[in-house]
Each structure stands twice: as structure tokens, then as C-alpha cells.
């Protein structure tokens, strides 16, 4: 484990333990707000799924399950690499932190790339809500709602991923060899954030992609 005496301690804290626990509580309180942020979207989904079950089933069938499952696997992989980055930080391994953060960034990049492909497919198929929406199906207007929620939710999720990637780049840069000693807490709270992003997708995936597969 990294030598505690070299880890920076902010002036307003008494000791490392207080700093560490306070930082963890702060991050969890922030994640609490993130839960409610996505909660609003899930509520909208719940309301409209309840109202228009057939339309949702039909619209969900237009999503690409292969790409969705692939992305889920990629994101889970990125959670693992992030957990390993946190582990490396606690063990004081600067190289490990940088390597595993880069791996996470690459995984995130793959996810976002696949998402971009999916979005472009939707655009070509006329499934983007708005002036060019073309999917009539049997339930017409109500399927547009599904796609509004699809783009809203996955878009918000992707935005959170982009922010996460930015933060990872910053943290990886700080952990580069020959830089001042960094606090493992930084990587740890980043890890909490990234796992949260994974959690959101764990619920988005079945609710968006797997609805009507059995019909």
C-alpha cells in the first residue's frame, strides 16, 4: 500500500482517515443526486410503458439486440478495468493506475462508437423523433414516444460517459510517473462515478432492448 505519510492531506482535515471518509460521503451524496436525475427519465418510461404497452413492444423490436448486448459486455469490462485502476491506486502503483484508466477509456470509446453506429442506423431508418419520424407501425404516434425516451435516456447516459472519460484522462495525467504523489481517493471517487454509470445501463438495457423479444 502507498506510504500514507506521502499522501497529501488538505489543511482543514485532522487526519487521513477523516479526509478519506469525508470524500467518500461527498461522492455518495452526489451519486444520490444522479440516481434521482435518471430517476426522472425512468419515471417517464414507467408512465408511458404502462400506457402504451403494445407500442413500446413494437418500437423496442427495432433496436439492435446484438449491439446492445455487446455494449453491455463492454461496459461491464470497463467497470472491471476501473476497479483494477482503483486497486492499483491503493497499492501505490502509478503505472497500474495509468494503464487501467487507459483501458477503461478505450472500453468507453468502444461503447460510444457502437452507440454512434446505432444512432446513425436509427437516423437512416427514420426512427429519430421529430420532423422526420417515419415509423408508423401499428401504433404510430405512441412509438415515437418510445424513441424519445430511448434517445433521451441513452443520450444522457452517453453524456455521463463522455464526462467520465474526460475525468479519467485528467486523473491518468495526474498519476503519470514523476508527477507529485496523488491521493488514491481521487481514483476511488472516479471509480464510484463510473460504476454508477454502469448501474444505469444495467437497467436501461433490458428496459429498452429486451422488451418484446419473446413475441
Amino acid at each position: 500500500m502507498a506510504d500514507p505519510s506521502t499522501i497529501p492531506l488538505a489543511h482543514h482535515f485532522e487526519d487521513q482517515e477523516q479526509q478519506h471518509e469525508t470524500t467518500a460521503i461527498g461522492m455518495w451524496a452526489f451519486l444520490l443526486s444522479e440516481v434521482m436525475f435518471f430517476g426522472g427519465l425512468f419515471t417517464a418510461y414507467l408512465v408511458y410503458r404502462n400506457r402504451y404497452p403494445e407500442a413500446f413492444l413494437e418500437a423496442s423490436g427495432k433496436l439492435d439486440v446484438t449491439l446492445g448486448t455487446l455494449n453491455t459486455a463492454v461496459l461491464i469490462g470497463s467497470s472491471l478495468t476501473m476497479a483494477l485502476a482503483v486497486r492499483a491506486a491503493h497499492m501505490g502503483s502509478r503505472g497500474g493506475v495509468v494503464r487501467w484508466l487507459l483501458a477503461t477509456i478505450i472500453a468507453a470509446g468502444i461503447f460510444l462508437g457502437v452507440k454512434a453506429v446505432e444512432y446513425s442506423h436509427k437516423f437512416h431508418d427514420g426512427l429519430v423523433p421529430g420532423a422526420n419520424y417515419a415509423f408508423k407501425g401499428t401504433a404510430s404516434a405512441d412509438t415515437e414516444l418510445f424513441f424519445a425516451l430511448y434517445f433521451g435516456a441513452t443520450g444522457m447516459h452517453a453524456l455521463h460517459m463522455v464526462i467520465g472519460v474526460g475525468l479519467m484522462a485528467v486523473v491518468a495525467w495526474r498519476w503519470r510517473p514523476n508527477n507529485v504523489v496523488q491521493h488514491p481517493d481521487g481514483v476511488e471517487v472516479l471509480g464510484l462515478y463510473w460504476h454508477f454509470v454502469d448501474l444505469v445501463w444495467i437497467f436501461l438495457f433490458p428496459l429498452l432492448y429486451l422488451l418484446g423479444r419473446h413475441v
Binding site: 407500442a55 404516434a141 415515437e144 414516444l145 425516451l149 434517445f151
Partner: peptide, 20 residues
């Protein structure tokens, strides 16, 4: 973008806005 979550024409419910 005319995403339509609260637009009655697209099946949306203006009341959902009020709830949230």
C-alpha cells in the same frame, strides 16, 4: 428536437411534466 415527451399529439401527457 420535438422529442415529444409531454406533447399530447404524440401521446405524451402534459401532466407528467407537472408530476416531475
Amino acid at each position: 428536437f420535438r422529442l415529444g415527451v409531454f406533447d399530447p399529439e404524440l401521446g405524451g401527457d402534459p401532466l407528467l411534466f407537472q408530476h416531475l
